[in-house]
């Protein structure tokens, strides 16, 4: 006989069971099988041989992979700070109830609804040295075109510009909703406390929305470590691998060379990187905000 409490608990479990099943089937199982797969030398269409950690050892000495890791970190460093700051500035400017503000909120959010294909098409037209928008403007001033996609030193910067333009809508909305949660009377108290614009921003506004800032930074790190579509569609990782991020490496190894064990191992490393960075930020932000 089940006790009444156990019966209730079983009833509760039934409610979450469908979700748990799908979660386990589509997320936990692939993650686990990916981890398992990374220990095999496996072909997409052939058999698999257990090789232990050899795939990981190979990755550590694979210059293409190491370059991809470097590229990805560079991209995240170029992308995430602007994606944390620019949407914040926009939100501060647009956090008012005028029609103009509503219009511009729409404008700045609109880029987010575009697919990566459209985004890269637009930006190719803007940045391409041969008759692109920027090149035309430079030509007016008699300046040579900038090789946005063919200079290894510039190409990741170009990817970052495209990505910031594409992705700033959602953080802006998150900041706006956070700003609207801050009680208005705190600002009135600050005005009576002789607080100037800058003091109010740094001592009142930012501390009040600090959780959202952390959320935006973590979210953008997780997203931008998974960079794929932009370089895949514009440069295919070139020139000379300078714009190949980890996900593109995984894609090429897995679906061009069919070496899925090796690709799975690279995926696990990306997973570990994202997990570590996220955890690190979370712990750091908890420490800084203290016990509040």
């Amino acid at each position: 006989m089940l006790s009444a409490k156990a019966k209730t608990q079983f009833g509760n479990f039934l409610f979450v069971a469908p979700y748990l099943f799908v979660f386990a089937w589509l997320l936990v199982w692939p993650l686990m099988s990916g981890m398992g797969l990374s220990l095999f030398k496996a072909d997409l269409f052939g058999g698999a041989t257990f090789v232990g950690f050899e795939n990981y050892a190979r990755l550590m000495s694979d210059p293409v992979f190491l370059q991809a890791v470097g590229n990805t970190f560079l991209f995240v460093l170029l992308c995430v700070p602007p994606l944390a700051i620019i949407p914040l500035l926009l939100a501060l400017l647009l956090n008012r109830s005028t029609r103009t503000a509503a219009f511009f909120r729409g404008v700045f959010f609109s880029s987010s609804v575009l697919s990566v294909t459209i985004v890269t098409l637009i930006w190719r037209m803007v940045l391409i040295p041969d008759g692109g928008f920027v090149a035309n403007i430079l030509a007016v001033f008699g300046l040579p075109p900038i090789p946005f996609f063919s200079d290894p030193g510039i190409v990741m910067g170009s990817m970052a510009i495209i990505t910031v333009w594409w992705c700033l809508g959602l953080p802006m909305m998150l900041y706006l909703s956070a700003l609207q949660q801050v009680p208005q009377d705190i600002y009135e108290a600050a005005a009576l406390d002789n607080s100037r614009w800058w003091t109010t921003l740094t001592r009142i506004t930012l501390p009040s929305i600090s959780r959202t800032v952390v959320l935006v930074v973590i979210m953008q790190c997780v997203l931008q470590f998974q960079l794929f579509g932009q370089p895949q569609l514009i440069t295919q990782g070139g020139p000379n691998g300078a714009s190949r991020p980890i996900v593109l490496f995984i894609f090429e190894v897995g679906f061009r060379r069919w070496d899925i064990g090796y690709a799975a191992a690279a995926s696990q490393i990306l997973f570990a990187i994202i997990l570590l960075v996220t955890l690190g930020q979370y712990l750091l932000s908890r420490k800084r905000t203290g016990d509040a």
């Binding site: 009680p183 009377d185 705190i186 009135e188 108290a189 600050a190 005005a191 009576l192 002789n194 501390p207």
Partner: peptide, 21 residues
């Protein structure tokens, strides 16, 4: 004048304390 320059202090209905300080 700006609120801070009027020589007044206000106690708000919902206190309006700065929560993070």
């Amino acid at each position: 004048l700006a609120p801070g320059e009027r020589g007044v202090a206000m106690v708000f209905q919902h206190y309006a304390l700065y929560p993070h300080m």
